[in-house]
Design a protein around this nucleic acid. Structure first.
Lengths: 192, 192
DNA sequence: AGCTATATAGACAGGTCTGTATATTTAACG
DNA sequence: CGTTAAATATACAGACCTGTCTATATAGCT
């Protein structure tokens, strides 16, 4: 939409940013290349000059969002809490902040896994799976710092709470799911 | 595929059954009318003679599955347990049986809500929302029979566990998520 | 047997999608 | 100023989609 800079790589970033917003808001199958180029204010050939195909653009959308999301989570957790135990619970406080955004439309990674459920060979499908693995690893690290008895097991339980909260919040459009999950997680930690 | 009976309504049921299987397996957007009629072994005009549009077929797919799913859940819960407390936990044992099916491809209702995320006015979208409300009401009824302090609140927590387990199992293709959720639910009930 | 309702195959209209081709204009730079 | 590289608008190919139309065939029923 904005006249993009002519600096090297700026147009590409602009297209990626516009596409990412559309993909998250409307779903990757509902957004066509024509819509992306129109919204980005570039010619179609410019798009295909920067991206080999729409599938690879979607993959990059997911990989970028993975990096952004996990960085956001870690940063927010460290901002909200200091002790390991409080940090583990702060995961759900972070979610609460996220759900507060009226533009929240569910978990982009779960959404892509669902939309691409019939083509798991799609590069974005694999990228989304890897994202969930990375988040699990991060949570497990937090729980190891807490010193719980079985970090891998509890991490999987936390991950289930996280996915449940993401889906619930996407459906209800409210922030309540974060509080529900946080209460449950608190009880799991108290049990230790 | 099978030559359908000529009894009144049988062809319609056959088409609906074939379409439902395809919709669940591949997603509603990936399955076109041509594929449905080819797989069902009927002519395209026969399809449109029985269904006004694909959108309404999808709605019926969801409403039928809602009825089937909740009946399955209630039946299975009553088969697995008798006391209210055990029945509430048996929800997750039932899930375990479901996840055992290699054809499990995630929660059909969550999948449709995601696939239709950009057109919430779609009749199937509303039907899927109503399904989740009905399941919540059923769980709340079970917890009221248990006699917990705050049935609506605990029911929402159980629902979050259920959705989390459905999503996790769909992603991992294993049955473990049911056990994880069940353990958490057990702790929530012990707390009472 | 003959009438009627329905099922059939297949073409087709009008729209969408991804990706490519072409021909023109713009911008950078020596 | 003049050359070169990149962005532009536009058209198009080929595939797919939903829904309609037509003309033929089949089945049940009296």
């Amino acid at each position: 939409m904005k006249p993009h800079n002519t600096q090297k790589g700026t147009a590409r970033e602009h297209i990626l940013a516009v596409a990412s917003e559309l993909f998250y808001k409307q779903g990757i199958r509902s957004v066509g290349v024509d819509t992306i180029v129109a919204e980005a204010g570039v010619a179609k050939m410019s798009f295909y000059n920067h991206f080999k195909s729409k599938d690879l653009l979607v993959e990059e959308y997911i990989r970028r969002r993975d990096g952004w999301w996990r960085n956001w989570l870690q940063t927010t957790v460290e901002r909200l809490a200091t002790s390991p135990r409080e940090q583990a619970l702060a995961i759900f406080d972070a979610l609460g902040e996220r759900f507060n955004n009226p533009a929240y439309r569910g978990c982009a990674f779960i959404n892509v896994l669902t939309e691409l459920g019939n083509e798991p060979e799609h590069p974005a499908y694999q990228a989304a799976l890897e994202h969930k693995q990375q988040v699990l690893a991060y949570i497990q690290g937090l729980l190891e710092a807490v010193g719980v008895a079985d970090p891998p097991h509890l991490a999987r339980q936390f991950m289930l709470l996280l996915d449940g909260a993401l889906v619930t919040a996407g459906r209800e459009g409210t922030t309540e799911a974060a509080g529900l999950a946080r209460q449950i997680a608190t009880q799991l930690l108290e049990k230790e």
